[in-house]
């Protein structure tokens, strides 16, 4: 991993230690798509920029940089999160999965990726990695019994929540698609519900 770009400008007069740490940078280790990466990270750097700029993983997109669009959604320790809102330095030891890692090592795409292709669940593709990662998170949350705003309040607690259209729409509402692929995205998610 090339860390030159982050090492060369600690505050003037401050000499970084061997690891490049100073009051503005810290060594951080993340597992990304199964591979460990140790980097000296600018404390201001968010996970999204670490992935895109330091690791060259540009699958996670920057739509707003403010937690308002979901284009940057990745899985951190299995949970879907907006990576533009996470300081990378706070994620030491975390396991991150991006759209590039969903398929694992195989040639075959993840079932959701396949479903997106089959349903034409995108146009420009800019929201797509976020939609897919978010949908992976949705499936896990529903299976784990997490309710949503539209879940019947009388549903048994802790039991898997069946994902109907309304549930899918509600749970994916943090992922904007300006191309308006929503109906196809909902169908693609339905296609992979076990």
């Amino acid at each position: 991993m090339d860390t030159r770009s982050v090492r060369q400008y600690g505050p003037p007069g401050k000499v970084p230690d061997d690891m490049g740490n100073d009051q503005h940078h810290s060594e951080t280790t993340l597992r990304v798509n199964g591979k460990p990466h140790t980097l000296t990270v600018d404390h201001r750097r968010v996970l999204l920029d670490l992935l895109r700029e330091d690791l060259g993983l540009t699958g996670a997109k920057k739509g707003c940089d403010h937690g308002q669009c979901g284009a940057c959604t990745v899985l951190v320790d299995g949970r879907r999160l907006n990576s533009c809102l996470l300081f990378a330095v706070a994620l030491d030891g975390c396991d991150v999965t991006t759209v590039e890692g969903l398929a694992g090592d195989g040639e075959e795409p993840h079932p959701l990726q396949r479903a997106f292709l089959e349903r034409d669940a995108f146009q420009c593709g800019y929201c797509t990695p976020g939609q897919i990662c978010s949908a992976v998170g949705v499936l896990a949350e529903a299976a784990a019994g997490h309710p949503s705003h539209v879940t019947d309040p009388g549903a048994p607690s802790g039991q898997p929540v069946p994902l109907d259209r309304d549930e899918i729409r509600e749970r994916l509402s943090g992922n904007l698609c300006r191309c308006g692929a929503y109906p196809r995205i909902a169908e693609a998610v339905e296609d992979v519900i076990p």
């Binding site: 895109r52 920057k62 759209v99 997106f116 034409d120 990695p129």
Partner: peptide
């Protein structure tokens, strides 16, 4: 016909201007 660049878009390898 299926989108020709579809695989790249769903796998995150399609490159946009800032990338």
């Amino acid at each position: 016909a299926e989108r020709r660049e579809g695989r790249e878009k769903v796998s995150g390898t399609a490159r946009y201007a800032a990338e």
